[in-house]
Simulated scan of single mutants.
Amino acid sequence: MSYKNFPMVSRVIFGRGSFNQLSEIIEPKRLNTNAPFIFFVDDVFKGNAWLMSRIPLSYQDKVIYVSANEEPKTEQIDQLVEDIILTFKERPSGIIGIGGGCLLDIAKAVSIMLNNDGESKDYQGWDLVKNPAVYHVGVPTISGTGAEVSRTTILTGPERKLGINSDYTPFDQVILDPELTKDVPKDQWFYTGMDCYVHCIESLNGTYLNTFSKTYGEKALELCKDIFLNNTLSVEESQDKLMMASWHGGMSIAYSQVGVCHALSYGLSYLLGIKHGIGNCIVFNHLEDYYPEGVALFKQMKETHNITLPQGVCADLSDKDFDVMIKVALSLEPLWENAIGKNWKKTITPETLKALYQKM
């Protein structure tokens, strides 16, 4: 049997205030004074002196603000890459993503595409990237997506929503500073935290499960229960633990795979532009047939934090719309195989998926 030989994030720093060490971490990687560091920053931090004053800019370095209101698109990545190539004399020394999953995915995708020809849509899939990415650093400012640790960067392309899954995708360096998550709005905190929770449930209940995934998944699940069901944690403890739950949840799917919820959520996101965290919540709420215990616990967490999910997001859709979502969801074959097994096509039919979408 042949085992997967997975890359990991090669360097990681954890601790409150560790963001202040960004300069000393990246400066040795500077190629020369004409090869800039490009900082992709979530535009919610525009005018936020507490964070922005700590970004170490010198020489040709540049901050590019990006909105995370929409999920990253392949055409957006191609445009950013083209702008960088046209603006600077030399390839960047490094790409630094500061923000949530969207910003981290953008940083990963741009760093790959700066060293690989063609369009980013050509690399959506598994192991299609030929050349190593430019040096890239991830600084999450919200916890849960696992984007800081995963070997994929999720992009919505012209045909589908699918990651660039490759050995060159993971960050070279990650800075885990829980202090950076202090201003996350409550709903957003819950939705993104639930992305982590769903990673655990799908990984731990999947047919791809192995001891590597299981060890990380169980730890992440234990942390999620502590964070979302225990009222005695301090704000700081909760922030620290969710940042580590996100890391462990991301690791749990590195060596296994996600499942039903993510497959359906990609369909919602592709057609309706619903963001990943909230999309997962909308879908997972209706998956008691697949993950009975996980969904029961999710509903308890939702109640504990007084979260109301959007209703009827699929109420006005045409048959054609449903077909588009179903096609996207069914194209994610490894997810279904992990969730249901090798013969998943016998039970997962377009009709099955349409009935699920109609409940949402």
Rank of each mutant, 00 (worst) to 15 (best):
N5L: 14
V174S: 04
A133T: 09
D42Y: 07
F284L: 12
A339W: 10
K130H: 10
L204H: 06
T215L: 14
V137P: 02
Y135P: 00
I64Y: 00
D78N: 03
I154F: 04
D289N: 12
M52L: 15
F19E: 02
D187R: 14
P28W: 03
P56D: 09
D43N: 12
K275C: 08
E119N: 15
V198R: 00
L176H: 01
H286W: 04
S318H: 03
N205H: 05
N285K: 10
D117M: 06
K327M: 11
K62N: 13
A355G: 08
H199R: 03
T169M: 06
Q79L: 14
L104Y: 01
V12M: 15
K73L: 07
K182I: 15
P56E: 01
K186C: 09
V63S: 06
K182S: 14
S246Q: 01
G97E: 04
R151P: 11
H262S: 08
H286C: 06
A254M: 11
I26T: 08
Y270V: 06
L31H: 12
H248V: 06
N48V: 10
S269H: 01
E337M: 11
L176E: 03
A220K: 04
K327T: 15
I95F: 03
C200P: 06
L233R: 08
L114P: 07
D122E: 14
G94I: 02
